[in-house]
C-alpha cells in the first residue's frame, strides 16, 4: 500500500520509457514515438557499423578501465586516512565530502573557465608561468591530449568524497576484535590491511566498483559542459550518450537509432556488471 505511489511513478517514468525505448529501437522512428515502419535489427546494424559510435564505445571502455580503479584506490585511501585521524575527524570528513554537493555542471564550468582556461591568467597556466613555462591551451590541443587531465581531475574531485563516505561507513563496521586478534598474532601494517580490512570491505568494494562502472559508461555532464562548444562536440573523448544526443536524441529526433544505441550501451553495462559480479562475487555470503 505505502509503496503504491512510488511504484506508479517508477512504472510511468522509468519502466514504460525503457520498454518503449526498446520497442522504438526496432522501428524507423524519425520525429515520432508511434512509428509504423518496422526495420528489425536495422538500427542496431547501423549503430554497430557507425565508426564514430564504435570509437566512442571504445574510448569509454578505456576510460572505465582507468577511472574505476583510480577512483576506487583514491577514495579507499582517503577513507583510511580520515578514519585513522584522531584530530578534527568531522572536519576532514566534511571537507572531502563537500565536492559531492557541487553540481557537475558548475564544477565543469569552473574547471573549463577558471582553472584550465588556456590564457596566461588561468590558474593552471599561472602556476606553469611561475615555473617558466609557456601557457598551455588545455582544451584546444589534441596532441598531447591535455583535455583528459581536465576531465579526469574534475570527475575525481566530484566523486571521491561520495565513495569515501561509503568506505568510511564500512570501515567503522569492522569489529575492533578482529584487529586486536590480528595484533596478537603479530600482523602489522600492510598485513592487517590485506588480510583483515580488505576482505571485510568486500561487499562495499563490490558495490562501489559496480556504481563506478555504471557512472563511467553513463558519463555525460562534465564531458558535455567541458568540451562542447556552441552546438558541436569534438570527435575525441565523446561519451556514447553525448554522441547519441547529437545525432539522434537531441535536434535529430531519430528515436530508432537513438534507442538502439541506448540499448547497446545498456547491454554493455549489464554484461560488464555481470562479469564483474562473477569475478568479485557480489551477493555471495561474506565469509
Amino acid at each position: 500500500m505505502f509503496v503504491g505511489p512510488f511504484v506508479l511513478g517508477l512504472v510511468v517514468f522509468i519502466y514504460v520509457p525503457i520498454i518503449w525505448s526498446a520497442y522504438l529501437s526496432f522501428f524507423s522512428a524519425y520525429n515520432t514515438v508511434t512509428p509504423t515502419t518496422f526495420v528489425g535489427f536495422g538500427n542496431y546494424l547501423d549503430m554497430v557499423r557507425d565508426p564514430a559510435f564504435r570509437s566512442s564505445l571504445g574510448t569509454f571502455l578505456v576510460f572505465a578501465a582507468f577511472i574505476v580503479p583510480t577512483t576506487f584506490v583514491l577514495s579507499l585511501g582517503t577513507a583510511l586516512l580520515v578514519s585513522r585521524t584522531r584530530v578534527m575527524q568531522a572536519f576532514f570528513r566534511s571537507v572531502f565530502f563537500l565536492p559531492v554537493a557541487c553540481s557537475y555542471v558548475v564544477a565543469a564550468l569552473i574547471w573549463k573557465m577558471s582553472i584550465f582556461s588556456g590564457v596566461r591568467f588561468g590558474l593552471a597556466n599561472t602556476i606553469l608561468g611561475w615555473l617558466g613555462r609557456d601557457p598551455v591551451p588545455f582544451l584546444s590541443l589534441t596532441h598531447p591530449p591535455w583535455y583528459w587531465l581536465v576531465i579526469v581531475t574534475a570527475r575525481l574531485w566530484l566523486q571521491i568524497g561520495f565513495y569515501m563516505i561509503l568506505f568510511l561507513a564500512a570501515l567503522q563496521r569492522i569489529s575492533p576484535t578482529l584487529y586486536e586478534a590480528a595484533a596478537i598474532d603479530g600482523a602489522r601494517g600492510w598485513q592487517v590491511f590485506r588480510w583483515i580490512t580488505l576482505p571485510q570491505l568486500r561487499p562495499t568494494s563490490t558495490a562501489v566498483i559496480l556504481l563506478l562502472l555504471i557512472n563511467a559508461f553513463q558519463a555525460f555532464d562534465e564531458f558535455f559542459n567541458i568540451l562542447s562548444t556552441f552546438g558541436t562536440y569534438p570527435p575525441y573523448a565523446r561519451p556514447p550518450l553525448v554522441y547519441l544526443y547529437y545525432t539522434a536524441l537531441g535536434q535529430g529526433q531519430d528515436f530508432g537509432h537513438g534507442s538502439a544505441g541506448a540499448v547497446i550501451l545498456t547491454l554493455i553495462i549489464a554484461i560488464v556488471a555481470v562479469v564483474q559480479g562473477r569475478l568479485t562475487g557480489i551477493g555471495r555470503a561474506v565469509d
Binding site: F13, P17, Y104, F224, L249, G250
Partner: peptide, 16 residues
C-alpha cells in the same frame, strides 16, 4: 548547460 538526466528524458521523456 545540459546534464545526463535531462538527456535521458529526451528519448523516453517524449513518450512520458
Amino acid at each position: 548547460p545540459l546534464d545526463r538526466r535531462r538527456l535521458l528524458t529526451l528519448g523516453g521523456g517524449a513518450v512520458a
